[in-house]
Write a protein that binds this DNA or RNA. Structure first.
Lengths: 209, 209, 209, 209
DNA sequence: AATGAATGAGGATTCATTCAT
DNA sequence: TATGAATGAATCCTCATTCAT
């Protein structure tokens, strides 16, 4: 999926939603007037592209997440070792704090009961990723790359591995967000611990089969 | 904090909010009429106890979380080893799926920009728990118990440890919610992996100091 | 059904709708703001009594029609002969041109496809008058009174009779509305022709059985 | 007035409006998009031919009514006696239930206060038929034919006659629409009664002068 | 001439909050 | 203290109309 495929007004709506969110707006109280006003289009125009406010918000977060993950994977691909790959992801999270906020919000929305949530789950289904939250897909891809010629572990173990890595990465993101580690050297240390822990677990499971 | 301190109508409101949430209501679209209707009190009465809808919802989730954590800690205290303690927590998460949903929602709300979120953060501040999300406090208590006479690790390492454990527990909860493991034997396996992983990391950090 | 049974705000809405209609408003473009503004109540208040705009309008016309027919029947009851009764009805139509406009509109609405129409048909069903337009019920009552001890004609003939009388009365109303006969002596002549024609047909059918 | 005089896109709009109405659409909630979509022309194109939605709808019903009346008159002309002529009209009403619905709707619209109504009244004025509703003109023509060499009754009596016949025909149409008589033999009986009643009244008035 | 994307005024409806009882 | 009827601000969405192509 490529940003160039979107129609300009569609893109404008996505951009508007994400911008407003990043500026601290409460998603659940975002109004269509705010979104279209920011997007620079007429209120009615938005309804030519979306069935309602919820679809606008859901798609904005969904595609924003998709693009971020794709970019992240591109960057990850340039790294050689698993350790460096994980480290790259953690560093990127730090560099793109704003976009991380969107990703976290997207993940939260997945477990809500709102109309926006229903739209997001619908979008995941359409992309045949029904069981994969955005970031999980990225992790799975990295694992496949790492596996190389070795024998594939059982599906059960793979899923556990994905979840485990996911939780560690997620945890690092939470700490960043909470600004617990104010100094770069502290963060560097935690990144090292996290990356090493992940590598070790991957090797374990891969060896285990 | 003790449930007996609440006034009956206050309690009724909390119960109503949690019930409605557990029945699948969308929190952001909960109405005062629904809440008071379920609580069996008049709409005006609620405003004698709360300044507005947001306070009702925020306090409902906050105190619900507090009670759950206290109960969990009581149960945990009966277990001897760290492994069993962690296992107990994971099992409880499974046994109390409904209440876990409330806890997760509470955590999500912490990072939102809604009025409800602001109320929750306000409540945390009042309890002097400003930096601790609900479950994190529980983990820290378990770690202190486990530490015993050994030397306390650096605050930095403790924080990392709490976050790491938190993320693993959170991950297990997510997998439960997503119903990825349908068979008890699969869940049992993941619980074992999770508990063992946590124990190992605790020992590492405790040894490291 | 008695006007006293209505709640005051309900009555205010009915009055407002009918007034606005009599002042020449287009029913299909009546706004809730106009209705409640005229009724002297808040917009939200109307929704405490009605499910929507359509229910307000439909009920306003329905009950207005019911009341008019009841009043008309009371007046009719004081007359002795069928001729005088019919004449009384025709005279009343002339005296109450405004209310007749409402009745005609009500009849027209019965054959529309709007939400208002559906409400009116629903109301008729509830009153167990599903096959009887408001005025038809009045005609049937007059016929039963006139029948006295004589044998009841076949249901088929009764229905024809009701429709036939209905169409004659309706026609007189149309002429009044179109102001074809400007002089009272012309109208008096047509009333006489109409009443006589009706009486003759009733006797025919009653004799026929 | 001849169908050939209409431009193709104009005709397409009329056809679309009538079709939509016959399919049960609510005229007051017909949208331009629906009309032009059905007509197979662009939304903007309709505005090259009409000043607005109301003109489209009004003209559609008006010309549809005109064509129907002309066709009906042609058919009536082939009948010899008044009885047969009236019977023919009633039968045609039954055979063309759909188109009758349009005629009835046209009549109802005449007494409304909507913009569509104003357009219809405007059209009647332009055709110098200001005092004649569509079907009334047909009745008057039939009466003139029937009169032959006999002396013309007073204008007052003629108007009464037209209205009276009109009301009986209208009444038959209403009964058809309400589907009160489900069996053809019942309808046949009512047609006979109606035709006979009309003939008798015409003779009376014609004799009266 | 024909189009339909874009618009925004307009209107129905909801719901948090108040306040007289 | 407890209530819930009344309110109207707030907001979503529709759709007639325009106008650049």
């Amino acid at each position: 999926m490529n940003r160039e495929e979107y129609l300009p007004k569609e893109k404008a709506v996505y951009k508007a939603v994400i911008e407003l969110f990043e500026e601290g707006a409460d998603i659940n109280n975002l109004t269509v007037a705010e979104i279209t006003g920011r997007a620079g289009i007429g209120k009615g125009t938005a309804y030519e592209y979306f069935s309602g406010k919820e679809e606008m918000i859901a798609k904005a977060f969904f595609y924003n997440g998709e693009i971020f993950c794709n970019q992240l994977y591109e960057g990850v691909s340039k790294e050689k070792t698993l350790y460096d790959k994980v480290n790259f992801v953690l560093l990127e999270m730090e560099n793109q704090v704003a976009i991380m906020g969107c990703i976290f919000r997207l993940l939260h929305m997945l477990s809500e009961n709102s109309l926006v949530s229903r739209w997001i789950r619908e979008l995941l289904k359409q992309k045949e990723l029904s069981e994969e939250v955005p970031v999980a897909g990225l992790i799975r891809k990295i694992l496949y790359d790492e596996l190389g010629d070795r024998e594939m572990p059982s599906e059960e173990n793979m899923t556990y591995l994905v979840c485990s890595i996911y939780s560690r990465v997620f945890c690092y993101g939470m700490m960043l967000k909470a600004e617990i580690y104010k100094k770069e050297e502290q963060r560097e240390r935690v990144r090292r611990l996290t990356s090493r822990g992940i590598c070790r677990e991957v090797e374990e499971i891969f060896t285990l089969g």
